[in-house]
């Protein structure tokens, strides 16, 4: 749930990275942490177990001030992927303004992707979030591994669904910023249509993206989100 605090001139947006266990949600945040300008992002908070499995969530805040004096905070969270942490996943999803579904490209894990997607749909519903309304992008991660779903298949399923689809090798940072760009634009568009953020913050979509992705090597001009997917 986007928080707009007019008194403190502050807006807080929550993005959640969701997906099956070991699909690379934390790796996405770690890569984004490396790439983003240290002046606009905070420390990466990783709450994991001794074997590097996410216990509660990871959190990286991104923040900047608009020329109109509004503080914009984007909080990037990951949800724990292990099956046993479902109640934690549900809590992390509370009030999400946008969701990145990180799917594992390996063919053998298609079933795990589908189960995680269904779990996400159910958890969103419990939190009062309509999966058809919430900004949502899909990232097929681990494109560097053997035995993965081929590009042609990804492109084909992407065309069928309404969610933008991105390909990534998060461990090398590839596709991470494109995915972040995708979810930020979609979230901004959705929130702007609903709450007139451009008017409140006096900032356009491109400027909003530029504040966050300025040195990440991505073109920050308005782009059409390319592909579509159908994991359901």
């Amino acid at each position: 749930m986007v928080q707009i605090n007019l008194e403190q001139r502050e807006i807080t947006i929550k993005i959640v990275y969701y997906g099956p266990a070991l699909s690379g949600k934390t790796t996405n945040l770690q890569a984004a942490h490396k790439i983003l300008d240290p002046n606009i992002r905070g420390r990466l908070m990783v709450l994991d177990t001794s074997d590097d499995r996410t216990l509660f969530f990871d959190l990286m805040p991104v923040y900047f001030k608009t020329s109109s004096g509004f503080t914009v905070k984007v909080k990037l969270f990951t949800a724990p992927g292990q099956v046993m942490h479902n109640s934690t996943r549900r809590i992390v999803l509370q009030g999400a303004d946008g969701v990145v579904f990180v799917a594992d490209s390996q063919k053998s894990l298609s079933q795990a992707n589908n189960e995680s997607w269904r779990g996400m749909a159910s958890n969103l519903k419990v939190n009062g979030i309509d999966i058809n309304e919430v900004p949502l992008v899909i990232q097929f991660n681990k494109r560097d591994l053997p035995e993965i779903r081929p590009d042609s298949e990804i492109a084909e399923v992407a065309d069928k669904g309404k969610e933008p689809v991105f390909k990534a090798v998060a461990i090398r940072g590839e596709g991470v910023m494109e995915t972040l760009d995708g979810i930020l634009r979609l979230t901004w568009k959705t929130m702007n249509a609903r709450f007139g953020l451009e008017e409140k913050l006096q900032i356009q979509e491109d400027a909003f993206i530029k504040h966050i992705l300025k040195d990440s090597g991505l073109p920050t001009a308005s782009r059409n989100l390319q592909s579509r997917g159908d994991l359901r």
Binding site: M1, N5, Q94, G95, R194, F195
Partner: peptide, 13 residues
């Protein structure tokens, strides 16, 4: 969306 007062809790996180 909601407009919050500074001290108001919204969600756990």
């Amino acid at each position: 969306s909601r407009v919050t007062s500074p001290a108001e809790d919204t969600s756990v996180l």
